[in-house]
Design a protein around this nucleic acid. Structure first.
Lengths: 205, 205
DNA sequence: GGCGGGATCAAACCAAGGTATGACCGGCCT
DNA sequence: AGGCCGGTCATACCTTGGTTTGATCCCGCC
């Protein structure tokens, strides 16, 4: 494990914060606590792997709005919801919006730990994927505009001469751009380049 | 729309079955009703697009077991759960296992229709993807064993001579198998073949 | 026995991919 | 002005990809 996971606990009940903190610390998980949703959103924290454990009903914000806020702010930590007075529609909505779990209070320690572990796992997976994608995107940005065009056309299955035709240039020039793209992207083969182009293009949120 | 969607309603309450049937029919959705989970599971039906609407608490089976049974039987219709006496953990479990929605009774007609529409949509998307995948897999099966091997190695980025080395044959033979694979798979370019190999290989359930 | 399919290989040939060298141009920054 | 970068192109040369023709071998099936 490179980074220790951090659990962000958001609850207005101080005793609950304390209980969760000692629970998480007891299994070696780092913990950060907040008394209000706003406190968390205002806090700047290193973007470390982990998750958020939050009560759906807080004085300053409800869980659904909190989720929306996170999305809007680009915070992509998985969320585990808990509640003392929740109803089914709320739990359904939370899960549909991506919450990992939804625990009614009181819950068993083990259930909370299971939920948190699942959330951390999801976060690690997302980070691994996002890391690859952004690395490839970053390299793609270092290509000159022409090189980018050529790469996209080539990885769409066009032959050099077709690319040349599409761009109104000669095949030789295409070869040069293509070679430069391969070098800069670190692609050994065309197949590699195709897979990278896959990561550059699509949107799947 | 090629096929009309069918909603499978499973509930032991006859009046609920009737109410849902008329609700769905009123918006042009085909409906099939069952008084018990076993009735549905025993019924053989054309695999048409649609979804299942089922009460979580039935005399012969609960909703969670029903979901497991569906998976096991290879029935992949989306499930909308409903209940009169559900609790949050049940709803959470159902959604985590893939249910599209979970509606407490009584529900508003519009909520049920929204859920069913979302489920049908999900089903159509799945069918579209599955259709492509199984079509490619089917074509892949028509390749001779050698052609399959060559195709997989080539789409992994290996050069013909490397493939030849790996398989202990000459480059010429590789070219022949490769050409045959392209023809049989209907791939115009290597890029096409790479994308098809993508569909043949992975598992994502 | 003969027939077909799968697998193997070779020779010959053509098309496409890839690199190196060298050159010219235009814009931009110092 | 000079330098750098991006883009363009050419010539030359080599590697890889891809097809055709033709041939051999083995195996299972009618």
């Amino acid at each position: 494990m490179p980074d220790k996971a951090i659990i962000h606990v958001v609850d207005d009940d101080a005793s609950m914060r304390g209980a969760l903190e000692s629970l998480f610390e007891s299994v070696g998980l780092g913990t950060q606590t907040y008394g209000a949703a706003g406190d968390f959103l205002a806090a700047s924290f290193a973007d470390m792997p982990g998750c958020i454990v939050i009560d759906v009903r807080l004085p300053d914000m409800n869980g659904l709005d909190f989720q929306a806020k996170l999305t809007q702010m680009g915070v992509r930590l998985p969320v585990v919801m808990m509640t003392g007075y929740g109803d089914i529609p709320t739990s359904v909505r939370a899960l549909k919006r991506g919450a990992v779990d939804f625990l009614p209070k009181p819950f068993r320690d083990q259930d909370m730990l299971d939920a948190v572990m699942a959330a951390i796992d999801r976060d690690r997976q997302r980070r691994a994927i996002d890391g690859d994608v952004s690395q490839v995107r970053q390299r793609f940005e270092t290509l000159s505009p022409r090189e980018q065009q050529v790469m996209l056309l080539v990885t769409a299955g066009k032959m050099n001469k077709q690319v040349a035709g599409d761009l109104g240039i000669t095949e030789i020039t295409v070869k040069i751009h293509r070679g430069a793209a391969m070098r800069k992207m670190g692609a050994r083969t065309l197949v590699d380049l195709v897979h990278m182009a896959e990561l550059v293009k699509p949107r799947r949120p």
